[in-house]
């Protein structure tokens, strides 16, 4: 008769421990960190290009950019003026983990950074399980997707603090309805902060930028 042995151990405890270490390090340096997640093609890199363009005179911004293959997105962000951009090519892995971030931050001097952005691999499933030591997850969705996406990927929308709806210039060209996506998202996460914008036309970007600046300032004031 085999013995029953209680283990009671989180499967991702190693990742969580390392993420907590990262969080402490970011906290000590008063760096605001967000983990940007979305499906492929929603516009994560576009949002970051625009954000860089509007904020890089005011803030020191570091970006780590995850992709399964190629450094194309990192190259785009360098083109957009990013001075502290580091690619993470996962070579097949569908998500970033705390260990990858831990390695990448060795390349930065954290006390010179105000805003640290993690662009995750385009995927709304796997990245939700991996804490990267961020202050918050920001989920991006675009109007060329289904407005029921929050219902299809509840884990990610529940774990995110902010939802950005991109490509609002294309509203009306598809069946996507803004009020529906908001309703669906808030059903899963009533505390979700929501921004609507178009990276292409620039509409709504000012509200997003103001909010982001405020987060960075609030972080600096934290004891």
């Amino acid at each position: 008769m085999p013995d029953k042995i209680a283990i009671e151990k989180k499967v991702l405890s190693e990742n969580d421990l390392l993420a907590q270490e990262l969080r402490t390090k970011f906290q000590e340096n008063k760096v605001f960190v967000f983990n940007l997640v979305s499906s492929p093609g929603s516009g994560k890199t576009s949002l970051l290009e625009k954000t860089l363009g509007l904020l890089q005179d005011k803030l020191n911004i570091a970006l780590v950019v995850g992709d399964v293959q190629t450094e194309n997105d990192a190259d785009r962000l360098i083109q957009a003026g990013g001075k502290l951009v580091r690619p993470i090519v996962t070579g097949g892995s569908c998500h970033l983990d705390a260990n990858m971030i831990h390695k990448s931050i060795q390349q930065f001097n954290l006390n010179e950074i105000d805003l640290f952005v993690i662009e995750n691999v385009g995927n709304l499933v796997c990245p939700s399980s991996y804490d990267l030591g961020e202050d918050m997850k920001i989920v991006l969705i675009s109007t060329t997707e289904g407005d029921d996406k929050p219902l299809k990927y509840p884990g990610m929308f529940r774990k995110s603090s902010v939802m950005v709806v991109n490509k609002t210039d294309l509203l009306g060209f598809s069946d996507f309805e803004l009020h529906k996506v908001k309703e669906n998202a808030r059903q899963i996460n009533g505390q979700l902060e929501i921004f609507e914008l178009s990276c292409r036309t620039g509409e709504g970007l000012d509200t997003w930028i103001d909010w982001l600046l405020e987060q960075v300032i609030l972080k600096k004031k934290e004891i």
Binding site: P2, D3, K4, I5, I7, E8
Partner: peptide, 16 residues
């Protein structure tokens, strides 16, 4: 949320 995020090894059954 109080439950739903678990990802844990509860126990094992083994012979020594």
């Amino acid at each position: 949320m109080s439950h739903g995020n678990e990802l844990e090894i509860a126990y094992i059954e083994a012979e020594d």
